[in-house]
Amino acid sequence: MNKNVVNKIAIGVLWAAALITVTMLGIIIMYVVVKGIGVISPQFIFTWPHGVNAEGGIWPTIVSTLYVTGLAMLITTPIAVLAAVYLAEYAKQGRAVRIIRYAADSLSSVPSIVMGLFGFSFFVEALGIPMSMFSAAMALSLLMLPIVMRTTEEAIRAVPRYIRWGSYGLGATKWQTVSHVVLPWAMPRIITGVVLAMGRAVGETAVVFYTMGQAINMPVTPLDSGRSMPVHLYLLAVEGINMPAAYGTAFLLMVLILIFNIGARLIVRKYRKAR
């Protein structure tokens, strides 16, 4: 076959593959928007459900979702960042570090239903913590930890050598260099990693189902239980009681993730501007 023809076919196939990906994304979003937007109203967002929890609004589930995600972020970020600093800056690069990195990657690929089961049997049954925001946040941070750790590690490694040298050249110790120069430099990418992980946690169903419960509740303390939006959506859909409300919840869930991503971009941009 003529090589120009082969070239054209190759481009066509690649283009089609890209088109399919974008189209699928578009269809999913359109589907949820079309089916869900009808029920969206201030009442839907800001009031409590009633009846068999299928009518009315979903306000407590929104609060529960944000609560547990925020808590999980607060637990995850310090641990993951410190672990990444250790791996990237202090640990002797070799077998042990490779094993830790591989373990982190493996941890992030554990099916979330397994993580939920583990969270339930460990935090709730073994440690006796009630099914609550706290238990769920702990289990979610197991999912978030490897994501934040790996992105932070990459961000730290991407800090140019001459920036570190500038600090060492002024008589700074390693820790002074890491805390005053390397981490601030890497911060935009670290934030991106944290938000990415939060996006994952917001949509997580299995883990919170096991560890937070499913009772509609307005959480105040971390030891209160609640029902998150994905769980609410799951229960509405599986029982088929109110499909429009299920799509409405799905729509709001996607909006929430979108807000997170836009927020991350704004923070990163602000950081870049401050430079």
Binding site: G166, Y168, P184
Partner: peptide
Amino acid sequence: VDLRRRVGMIFQQPNPFPQSIYDNVAYG
């Protein structure tokens, strides 16, 4: 670390830290 306080260094690539001008100079 003490030696590098006595023998300062400037690099080919300007390498200010992501901080204010004041904080950069006050760093050392």
